[in-house]
Design a protein around this nucleic acid. Sequence first.
DNA 1: CGCTGGTATCAGCGAGCGATGATGTGAAAG
DNA 2: CTTTCACATCATCGCTCGCTGATACCAGCG
Lengths: 102, 102
Amino acid sequence: MLTSVDPDLIRVLGDPLRLRIVTLLARETLCTTHLVEETGAKQTNLSNHMKVLREAGVVETEPCGRFTYYKLKPEVLAGLSEQFAALADSARTASENKRACP
Amino acid sequence: MLTSVDPDLIRVLGDPLRLRIVTLLARETLCTTHLVEETGAKQTNLSNHMKVLREAGVVETEPCGRFTYYKLKPEVLAGLSEQFAALADSARTASENKRACP
DNA sequence: CGCTGGTATCAGCGAGCGATGATGTGAAAG
DNA sequence: CTTTCACATCATCGCTCGCTGATACCAGCG
């Protein structure tokens, strides 16, 4: 088993603003206007980040009139959680697997 | 409660090479020489990344003669796992908390 | 001591990416 | 239909950050 974490997914969440968006969306389903209010970022900037989050499969869009609501996909976060848990688990036994000095 | 994840920590793990290092260290405790062999990166490059990981509290150093072994701190990964689990949990109920269109 | 090998630090370069402004699209309101 | 508003796309700028090379440091070994 190859305990690993998807690099692209973490890279996407590595941006502070995107992580903030994800944190906000974890509480409420919001549209771009709300996110502009909450984060203080410009609409264009947010739209770019939302595109990244969408393509990474982190969020889903739900059109509502002329508004676009964004909701998180909990499975993705749960998957990340499991992957990190597996890494942590593996790391606990790694202290003994010390490769010999060359 | 403010379900959030440490942005700096994720940012550190957002780099592909650093994530690769963490994945490798999750199986074995290695020194820089080993990491150079495994990743193919230059020693200088790796040393820089190890410094970042060290300052982020992800790894610990353990000198062994003129070698320096790196080991993961499982608590950090476990903490990340919990934080993502909390986010996922919160996200599951967020679908209903839809803020009204302005 | 001088030499060798493992590792850390520093300065500089360059690509990648986040932020911004202008513009396009599409749907409701009038 | 025209206007307005929410949102997306595109091109561009600027800066961060990862990579590299030179160099310093430290620990063993002869």
